[in-house]
Amino acid sequence: MNQQEFISQLQEALSRLPESERQDIVADYQEYFRDGLAAGRSEADIAAGLGDPRQLARELTARHHIARWESRKSVGNLLAVVGAIAGLGVLNFLLAIPFLFYLWLLTMAALAATGILIGGVVLFGTLACNELFGWPAMHETRDMRAVWSAFEQGGPVGNIHIRGSRGEKVDVVRDASSGKTSINIQSSDGTVSLERNASDVTGQLRIEDKEGQVNIDALDWGFSRKGAWIASVLMLLLGGGGLFLCYLLARWTWRGLLAYGRYQLGILDKARGLDG
């Protein structure tokens, strides 16, 4: 191999590096050839001493990408590192595919966690803002809820008992001490009873007729401020925790990858030392 062949092979194999870096490397080797020729050696002898230009280029490219990734951690730079290490011929293509899939999963998980976190922050912020400034206004608009508040605020104090001529009964009972309220409707067809605890969050619905019975415990009374607070805190914890976990995983991954890359470069160094 003469100088021109060596340099053109090197240049071609370095095509993935930025122009300035490629020129710098090529200039280094041209200088080396000049010095070798001045010392009276043949081009073939110098080229043989320098080794395979394509292998040199692969190693220089891998080093370049690792350095880039260390200075700026972007997905593109990481993929370049994976590609460069694969180019060294050790992490082969079959291994790279599940690794890229894993990176994709990690990215998706991080996105999901970010979404949950943002949702939590928005909900928490809205609630806190409403608490402090009364804005934005919160309407508790579900039907069931409206019935209850109408009953509580505008309804008569005390209990209501209505009796029909065919044995129909409607009882509205409010226990002032426990805050428990219940509505019982009874007819020849069956009964409907609705019960609500003072906790403001859950209640009980019971419907009974000749054919069967439906029981719903822990009935959700619709939008509840307390529930929203809990949900927002849960979302913050879940999103934050998930994001932190993804961050840790990503850190371990890129550290492992860098260590792996350095290990591969070390093998190359050793191999070159042996034939030197």
């Binding site: 080396y32 010095d35 070798g36 320098l50 080794g51 040199l56 030197g276």
Partner: peptide, 22 residues
């Protein structure tokens, strides 16, 4: 410079020229 470094080192030890730039 690179070529001189290789010459200095190879006076007393075996050095692969390809190693020098990396």
């Amino acid at each position: 410079y690179a070529y001189e470094l290789v010459s200095i080192l190879s006076r007393s030890m075996e050095v692969s020229e390809g190693t020098m730039y990396p």
